[in-house]
């Protein structure tokens, strides 16, 4: 099979896509945000519990392709315990990782998220990989309207 496909669909991504972590409603959430990709119908609801500027808990529910589910799952694991400011920085680095050539893939703060670097070779799939992240940014900005990738 095509090496770029192998790179995109690594075992970790397939695994997180099939069995997303933190995949539940969060009753204690103080921010709830919907994200929607009208092009492909991917949908998710993001739940955040933030305490004194620190993200205490992140969960999500929804449906979508392996890339969008895995990305949301990995994001939820990664953000727990980070400050809001750190989360915003991580978003920027992550966005660069999946869209820019020569992005600092070694960017320390990305950790396991670098596994999604293969998305860069699939421009039409970038929106799948960033749906959860755009939803996060909307939630952190206190937006009311659901986030749409279009």
């Amino acid at each position: 099979m095509n090496p770029e496909l192998r790179e995109l669909y690594q075992q970790v991504i397939i695994d997180h896509g099939k069995r997303p972590r933190n995949f539940c409603k969060l009753d204690a959430a103080d921010r709830v945000m919907d994200g929607y990709n009208p092009l492909c119908g991917d949908k998710l609801t993001l739940y955040l519990k933030i305490d004194a500027g620190i993200i205490k808990d992140v969960t999500f529910q929804g449906s979508g392709c392996a890339i969008s589910m895995a990305s949301a799952s990995l994001m939820s694991e990664h953000l727990k315990g980070k400050t809001v400011e750190e989360a915003e920085n991580i978003f920027n680095s992550f966005h660069a990782l999946v869209t820019e050539d020569n992005a600092k893939a070694k960017d320390q703060q990305l950790g396991k998220l670098t596994i999604l670097a293969g998305v860069k070779e699939f421009p039409v799939r970038v929106k799948c990989a960033t749906l959860a992240w755009h939803t996060l940014v909307g939630a952190l900005a206190g937006k009311q309207e659901p986030v749409s990738t279009e």
Partner: peptide
């Protein structure tokens, strides 16, 4: 998911 199918086929 259909999107993943589409991507694999496209390659």
């Amino acid at each position: 998911h259909p999107h993943d199918i589409g991507t694999v086929l496209d390659r």
